[in-house]
């Protein structure tokens, strides 16, 4: 795997508690990478280690295979969870200031910012003061300031907090767009719906440790335990007989529209799904069979409770 960022055995402790305990992970180039975990798990600390705001006690952070240096951070786009904007400054001036700090010249910065402001429907705010903005508004400004210089690596700490569903969706689209244009995106969140929709990979941090890492599809499939949903028109007895030793129904069928009934079945790992379909198709007037994967929300809760 071509990893843009590698974290190897990072440990960080503050007086009296360990914030990160031997955390390792790899962020594939071009991925949208979710850092999940309950409040206080250490997500933000990990992000602050990556941005060199906090120094790790031990372990390494590698960017493109080389240890991360102070100058590297200048090429990362970082949006902290608590919005870091100068309150008294006007929105446009502020965005230009941050863009120029990241190396854009004034005209280019303004050109790009105007485009972004239009895209996020905030063009009218150019001359407003930050202190007059709502939290969600300020967040959009912060988002634009973070991405305007088109960094290769973007890090967002809780990007969706403070957004209504419409704007959260807008932001999601923009994050995916950034990925499509070649950026790698890391973000922390506990909004699981957003994880399913946009993350390719995740790491779940709980109590300062990395307890689950990998591609979202793999994780959900692994956690799913080969559960399938069958929609059919037979009685339960017929269905169970049809399944025979191929698979096992979990619970009874329940009726859904059009006289069809739905039931969950478990197909053992070594069983060929096709033989189950064949058996059901013969006797049960099979309408559909699909794999049931647990939601990230379930996985999150089960992983944190240690029941995964």
């Amino acid at each position: 795997m071509d990893a843009i960022l590698k974290i190897e055995g990072v440990t960080k402790s503050y007086t009296g508690h360990v914030a990160l305990d031997d955390v390792s992970l790899e962020v594939p180039r071009g991925a949208v990478y979710g850092l999940l975990g309950p409040n206080g798990a250490g997500k933000t600390t990990l992000i602050r280690v990556i941005t060199r705001i906090t120094m790790a006690d031990s372990g390494r952070v590698l960017l493109d295979g080389k240890p991360l240096k102070a100058e590297d951070v200048y090429h990362i786009g970082y949006m902290p969870e608590e919005r870091g904007l100068y309150k008294k400054m006007r929105v446009g001036d502020q965005a230009i200031f941050f863009s120029r700090l990241k190396g854009l010249d004034r005209r280019e910065a303004e050109r790009r910012l105007r485009i972004w402001f239009d895209r996020l429907n905030i063009a009218d705010w150019w001359n407003k003061r930050v202190e007059d903005l709502s939290k969600g508004m300020a967040q959009k400004v912060q988002f634009i300031s973070t991405v305007v210089h088109e960094p290769k690596l973007l890090i967002f700490d809780e990007p969706f907090s403070g957004f209504d569903p419409i704007n959260a969706n807008l932001l999601k689209e923009e994050i995916l767009g950034l990925r499509d244009r070649g950026a790698t995106v890391i973000f922390s969140t506990h909004n699981m719906a957003s994880v399913e929709e946009i993350c390719d990979h995740i790491t779940l941090i709980n109590k300062s440790r990395n307890i689950l890492s990998g591609a979202v599809e793999d994780i959900r499939r692994a956690a799913g335990g080969n559960m399938f949903e069958v929609v059919h028109r037979a009685s339960d007895e017929v269905l169970v007989a049809a399944l025979g030793s191929h698979a096992m129904a979990v619970g009874d069928s329940c009726g859904i529209v059009g006289g069809y009934r739905s039931v969950k079945i478990h197909i053992p790992k070594d069983e060929d799904v096709r033989s189950v379909i064949a058996a059901l198709n013969d006797r049960c007037e099979l309408r559909s069979l699909r794999e049931v994967m647990p939601s990230m929300n379930d996985i999150f809760i089960r992983a944190v409770n240690g029941t995964l």
Binding site: R52, Y78, P80, G84, L85, K87, F98, L101
Partner: peptide, 17 residues
């Protein structure tokens, strides 16, 4: 203090020393 409290500093230090 304001820069620190408003966390502007977090953004700033990823742009300059």
């Amino acid at each position: 203090v304001e820069e620190k409290a408003s966390r502007v500093i977090d953004v700033m230090v990823t742009s300059c020393t």
